[in-house]
């Protein structure tokens, strides 16, 4: 148990379908991997790709995005916008040198608790195979990437 890599995954769910799918999984006591921590958005269309980058930069090894099935969106069609952003984001991640597979999009209706649990388990396994992300630490003060082995140095304040 301690030897296997336990990935940390941040999940974004919409309020209407996927968060309720998570509720349904809970109510039905469907067991799934504990590696995912969910954040509730009103709609998958609210997902700013910056959220995903922020999560990956902050220590997550993978990000799960979940919304209503195409056609079932509570806000008519915003999940299609999530899909577009997701596809673009995967391309951008590739450019960053991050495996695009670290971000996954899953449609789950409010009735699909079991399905969501299966998808979470599968995703945890996929990330486990990819290994830790090891995103370089971001230096808030200089606004630059730092190689993991260099300690951030304080920058002297320049008088105006």
């Amino acid at each position: 148990m301690t030897d296997t890599f336990e990935p940390v995954i941040v999940g974004f769910t919409c309020n209407w379908c996927s968060y309720r799918a998570a509720d349904a999984a809970g109510t039905a006591r469907v067991k799934y991997a504990p590696n995912v921590r969910l954040i509730r958005l009103m709609c998958s269309g609210r997902l700013d790709p910056a959220f995903v980058l922020k999560a990956l930069a902050g220590g997550a090894d993978g990000v799960l995005i979940s919304g209503c099935h195409p056609g079932d969106c509570h806000y008519i069609e915003q999940n299609y916008k999530a899909l577009r952003r997701f596809l673009l984001l995967r391309r951008t991640l590739k450019g960053f040198g991050v495996e695009p597979e670290r971000v996954k999009l899953v449609w789950a209706s409010a009735a699909e608790g079991v399905r969501l649990a299966h998808e979470i388990n599968a995703f945890v396994e996929e990330i486990r195979k990819l290994g830790p992300l090891n995103w370089p630490k971001w230096d808030n003060q200089s606004g630059r990437d730092l190689p993991a082995d260099i300690e951030p140095q304080p920058i002297e304040e320049v008088p105006a």
Partner: peptide, 21 residues
């Protein structure tokens, strides 16, 4: 309140109450 415009605004000029950046 779906927030898709908040995510889409290139200038970051839209904010969503309850689910802000």
């Amino acid at each position: 309140g779906c927030g898709t415009c908040v995510a889409a605004c290139p200038a970051g000029a839209i904010t969503g109450t309850g689910f802000s950046n």
